[in-house]
Amino acid sequence: MATKFFLLAFLALAASRALASDPGQLQDFCVADRTSQVFVNGFACKDPKNVVVEDFLFSGLHMAGNMGNKQGSAVSAVNVAHIPGLNTLGISLARVDYAPYGQNPPHIHPRASEILTVLEGSLYVGFVTSNPETKLFSKVLNKGDVFVFPQGLIHFQFNTGDKEAIAIAALSSKNPGVITIANAVFGSMPSISDDILAKAFQVDKKIVDHVQAQF
């Protein structure tokens, strides 16, 4: 009787895991039809008869982005918005350029883990674990080094050198999303009450007002 119970329990667990996983591909590809009026979790599929090779192509990642901003960095994303053929494939990438001492500020990708490869220069990178015991995992990376940022965790990159740096990031989603922490907290529209932010950061409201004014 006990053996039968454990067998049934195992089968139930296996079935629940199968139902919880992402479905496999049911066709060779599902090129995004960005003109479709059908609202789905992602993009509807283009008729395969209308798919062309350009649906799987993006050109221009050899060009550096504009780093002339306050952060001194530029992210050139290549996701389903740029390559329709990425639809349903669960992958995307980005080129990140860093001016001397520039940074890709603390941010999260709500729908993807990230693996970063340094092509040129040196980067100080890190991520912070979730509550209750937040811990910083950080490292200085050099050319050829690879680092992983788990999905949904706050992470950053900082150029430690006096020369430009370049990295390529691969992400486990066709549309990983990005939430830059400072922009989201201090630059939302409408803005979060300075009373709330002052209490959250344990500072005077005048400081919050000053920071919000930067965004």
Rank of each mutant, 00 (worst) to 15 (best):
L7M: 13
F10S: 13
L19T: 03
S21K: 06
S21T: 08
L26V: 12
V31M: 12
V31Q: 07
V31I: 05
T35L: 04
T35G: 00
T35Y: 00
P48D: 04
K49F: 00
V51E: 03
V51K: 10
V53L: 08
L57V: 14
L57R: 13
G60M: 01
G60Q: 02
H62K: 10
H62D: 07
M67S: 06
G68F: 09
N69E: 03
G72M: 11
S73K: 10
A74C: 04
S76F: 02
A77R: 11
N79S: 10
A81M: 08
H82D: 12
P84M: 03
L86H: 04
L86P: 03
T88Q: 11
G90S: 08
L93Y: 11
V96Y: 07
Y98F: 15
G102E: 03
Q103T: 00
Q103I: 01
H109Q: 00
R111M: 07
A112Q: 05
T117V: 14
L123H: 03
G126V: 05
T129L: 07
T129H: 03
F137E: 04
F137L: 10
V140R: 13
L141S: 00
N142E: 12
G144V: 05
V146S: 05
F156Q: 11
F156E: 06
T160S: 14
T160E: 11
K163L: 10
A165W: 00
A165D: 09
I168M: 05
A170R: 03
S173D: 13
V178Q: 13
V178F: 06
S193F: 07
L197G: 09
A198M: 07
D209F: 12
H210M: 14
V211A: 09
A213C: 00
F215Y: 09
